[in-house]
């Protein structure tokens, strides 16, 4: 078992053909990381140096070789997997070299989460299509993590803006299947996950709004009964558990309420219900969190931005917000393990 008492985040360098290296270099150069935190970055020093040079930053880390014991003290460590000479791959497009590098860094970071050495896992953006070149079954980060960890349960994706979280009960399923999946247990589970993840990331008692499934929240049962049969009982049960939960609210105004400051989070029932609003509110600058696994996984909501790779213009704001959430959650988990 790990001996470090410091909240630990494992960070995988993302796609080396995109802005992954620049953002990893920025994170390692930042003075905004918590003083008691332990950051372990996986990559290749040559890739990191190329990113640092492009962005004009100076990363600070103890360099370790692959397999070397990672010190338990607070600080930043860079594990050099020595797995890619950046001169051998094209910038801004897919290549097997970039693909193999990213799959390996991500795997290494997840392994640290599995072993318990890392309390949270993060990555700078990957490119899914590039990942598939050497790992054909790569669907997305959730499926890959599930494969690696052997976790069979449902994972939840959270979309996070500075003052607004969004989680959804169903995601990549046909609309025709959504209503059948909106069950008491499924909604309750998402609600508990949201409540727990938000508490771990610093909300003392997050206020969560439930979005209705049907137009006008079902209009008293005229346009569907899920609000009456499922969502209202969920809200009652959740409040009994101490979760601050209101709704179900008509989904065309639930985000208006949250943006007004009435709620910290909206739990939506299906993909587009949350994504339409969040993307209009500015989610591209936000953070994505995967919950449900034994450890939280965090990244920037934006992609690997092939068009601006190594041009020194990558904006590290979303990635730094992701690191802040990763460290807060790592800290909460470390304290919970100690208790």
């Amino acid at each position: 078992m790990p001996v470090s008492t410091c909240p630990t985040v494992a960070l995988a360098t993302g796609c080396p053909a995109g802005i992954g290296a620049e953002l990893a270099a920025y994170v390692l150069s930042s003075s905004d990381l918590p003083a008691n935190g332990r950051l372990i970055v996986f990559g290749d020093t040559r890739v990191l140096e190329k990113g640092a040079k492009a962005l004009g930053v100076v990363p600070r880390a103890h360099i370790l070789t692959k397999g070397e014991t990672i010190p338990s003290a607070a600080g930043s460590y860079f594990v050099d997997l020595a797995n890619l000479d950046p001169a051998t791959i094209p910038v801004g497009t897919y290549s097997e070299g970039a693909s193999a590098f990213a799959v390996e860094t991500f795997s290494a970071a997840i392994d640290l989460g599995i072993s318990g050495e890392a309390d949270a896992v993060a990555w700078t953006p990957f490119n899914k299509a590039c990942m598939r070149l050497t790992h054909p079954g790569y669907e997305d980060e959730i499926v890959f993590t599930a494969e690696k960890t052997g976790y069979k349960g449902a994972a939840s994706e959270f979309n996070i803006l500075p003052n607004l979280w969004n989680a959804r009960v169903t995601s990549h399923v046909p609309i025709s299947r959504v209503a059948a999946l909106i069950t008491f247990d499924a909604v309750m589970r998402s609600l508990r996950l949201t409540h727990q993840a938000m508490r771990e990331s610093g909300f003392a008692n997050p206020r969560i709004a439930l979005a209705a499934l049907n137009p006008h929240a079902g209009d008293g049962g005229n346009f569907g009964r899920e609000e009456i049969d499922v969502l209202e009982p969920v809200a009652v049960a959740a409040r009994k558990e101490g979760i601050l939960c209101d709704g179900p609210f008509p989904s065309d105004t639930v985000f208006v309420r949250a943006q007004r400051g009435d709620y910290d989070a909206v739990l939506t029932m299906y993909h587009d219900q949350g994504q339409i609003a969040m993307k209009l509110i500015g989610f591209e600058a936000g953070v994505t969190l995967l919950g449900g696994f034994a450890f939280p996984l965090v990244t920037a909501a934006h992609g690997s931005a092939y068009d601006i790779a190594y041009k020194g213009v990558a904006n590290p704001g979303a990635m730094m917000n992701a690191m802040a959430i990763a460290f807060r959650m790592a800290d909460a988990r470390k304290k919970a393990k100690a208790a």
Binding site: P215, S251, D252, D272, Q273, I276, L280, I281
Partner: peptide, 13 residues
């Protein structure tokens, strides 16, 4: 294709 898909964007904007 359905009510809220049309209503969410106009009201959010």
């Amino acid at each position: 294709m359905y009510h809220d898909q049309a209503l969410i964007p106009v009201k959010t904007i």
